[in-house]
Design a protein around this nucleic acid. Structure first.
Length: 489
DNA sequence: ATATGTTTAAGCGTAC
DNA sequence: GTACGCTTAAACATAT
């Protein structure tokens, strides 16, 4: 078993925040009565939570809900579609991965090497069409507890997920390991060679930058972060999606998979703990289809696509390519020159420095407004609630989105420091997906240590909502919200 | 010894 | 067919 320790520090969720989430959840439910929600969102048990089936998670990607910070996943809460839509409330801590690990409860611990693993389309909504396309994906794959199915994410994606979940600008290798093993049961039992692949990815993938440890910093190895240079490049459209091969079930494991798995007439999504199956109403499916069509997702959309979109946000992924295979000369060492950037992945010092630019902006007021659905401008420039339909419009349909943002962008990036280039503008299609695909990339970090300090900033840093987004939101409504907000700065 | 990091090599699938 | 993206394996070096 891995012996991992995080030498980095992590923010910490708090009970208070969790309570806020409950409130926000109730508000979210009130948003859409047409979509059935679990009326028991406060239940500590894993509910089937129709909120997911009803694509509430999709709604949560919307600007308005994103602005309603508490609705977004917080440390200690599993709302990542990867794990279903579990909503933890009160003081209940997220279930221990190991506690929920079937493989830890009598199942064999030898699922084999990653290579032999089964692939399945990810449980994101967009995977639904993938399900339909391939038609042989298990009805529910809970990667957090299912030790047999290899997550359909590339290692680079996993690394990025870990980085995203860490809420830090840099992350240690051991923390990447830990996050992966904590969140993907498969890797807890797989041959540890996957760690080699992780390291290989970090070293070879141009998107990852090594941040050497300070001389006086104890611990092994350095830190890793994402190279914003490639984020920019990707945002300019230099990325491509790639299909995953059809679902492959490891023959060695196939027998252990519940027999009789069938795709239900209504697509299903995994639920944390695998305690239930989620069905999507025809209405929601229609909505989903519209969404996926609008975002370019099609039957080939899969987590790899998500990956591609994440590339845009985080500067990783397939579009980035590896630091490798230059035809000549054979040995080409990529020098990772340290660079100053306005990256979302700023180092602590950089963030601190930029943080001073934040001024006395009233985050609480703004966020409260956002939570109440007020961050919208009507034709007169007055704040007004955003209609639900607007939340789900993409490319002119249903989702209003910021012009340019990355889920990793920090609140410490000032709007003034963010100039939207034309190429970036032209990458809106991509960015939309980036936004949608990464907004749910949240996961608890058991070793978070930040004590919940600067929770607002954390939220703005990590939930996919930041000042820029808010400003851009204002822009997207042709109002003058930007100036209104900037006036606070 | 172990963890971390780099590099090379090969194979496979996909996109062009 | 070729280039690319990704994975896996392995060797090796360095740091703790």
């Amino acid at each position: 078993m891995l012996s991992l320790s995080c030498t980095d520090t992590w923010p910490e969720g708090s009970v208070a925040l969790e309570e806020e989430v409950v409130t926000a959840a109730a508000q979210a439910e009130a948003l859409d009565e047409s979509i059935t929600h679990s009326s028991n969102s406060c239940s500590s048990s894993v509910s089937l939570d129709d909120s997911l089936t009803s694509l509430q998670w999709l709604q949560e990607f919307s600007i308005i809900n994103a602005s309603g910070n508490q609705q977004l996943p917080l440390p200690g809460q599993n709302q990542h579609p990867l794990y279903g839509h579990q909503r933890l409330v009160g003081s209940e801590a997220p279930a221990s991965p190991m506690a929920a690990d079937p493989a830890s409860m009598g199942m064999p611990h030898t699922p084999g090497k990653p290579t032999a693993a089964a692939f399945c389309r990810g449980p994101t909504s967009s995977s639904l069409l993938g399900l339909a396309a391939y038609g042989h994906c298990p009805e529910e794959v809970d990667y957090k507890t299912n030790p047999h199915v290899k997550p359909p994410y590339s290692y680079a994606t996993l690394i990025c997920m870990a980085m995203q979940a860490s809420k830090k600008t840099k992350i240690t290798l051991s923390c990447i390991y830990k996050w992966i093993t904590d969140n993907f049961c498969y890797f807890r039992h797989a041959d540890p060679t996957w760690q080699n692949s992780i390291r290989h990815n970090l070293s070879l993938n141009k998107c990852f930058i090594k941040v050497p440890r300070q001389k006086d910093e104890p611990g092994k190895g350095g830190f890793w972060k994402i190279d914003p240079q490639y984020a920019d490049r990707l945002l300019s459209g230099a990325y491509k999606k790639r299909r995953l091969p059809p679902v492959q079930i490891n023959p060695a494991l196939q027998a252990r998979v519940r027999p009789g798995l069938q795709l239900r007439p209504t697509a299903s999504l995994p639920v944390v703990g695998g305690q239930g199956e989620l069905s999507i109403s025809p209405e929601s499916q229609q909505l989903l289809q519209e969404f996926e069509e609008a975002t370019g997702a099609d039957q080939n959309w899969d987590p790899c696509s998500t990956e591609g979109t994440m590339s845009g946000a985080w500067g990783m992924g397939k579009g980035c390519g590896y630091k490798r295979k230059q035809p000549v000369p054979r040995r080409t060492t990529v020098v990772k020159a340290p660079r100053r950037s306005s990256s979302p992945l700023l180092c602590a010092d950089e963030q601190k420095e930029l943080g001073s630019l934040k001024g006395d902006f009233d985050w609480d007021a703004l966020l409260d407004s956002a939570l109440c659905g007020e961050l919208s401008l009507d034709g007169t420039g007055q704040l007004s609630p955003i209609e639900r339909d607007e939340d789900l419009t993409v490319r002119g349909r249903h989702i209003e989105r910021p012009q340019q943002w990355s889920p990793l962008e920090t609140s410490t990036e000032t709007a003034s420091s963010h100039v939207l280039s034309e190429t970036q503008q032209s990458s809106m299609d991509f960015d939309e997906e980036t936004f949608l695909a990464t907004a749910f990339l949240q996961s608890p970090w058991p070793e978070e240590e930040d004590g919940g300090q600067d929770r607002r900033a954390d939220f703005l840093c990590n939930s996919g909502v930041n000042l820029e987004q808010l400003l851009d939101l204002g822009d997207s409504f042709s109002g003058d919200l930007s100036s209104k907000i900037e006036s606070f700065l």
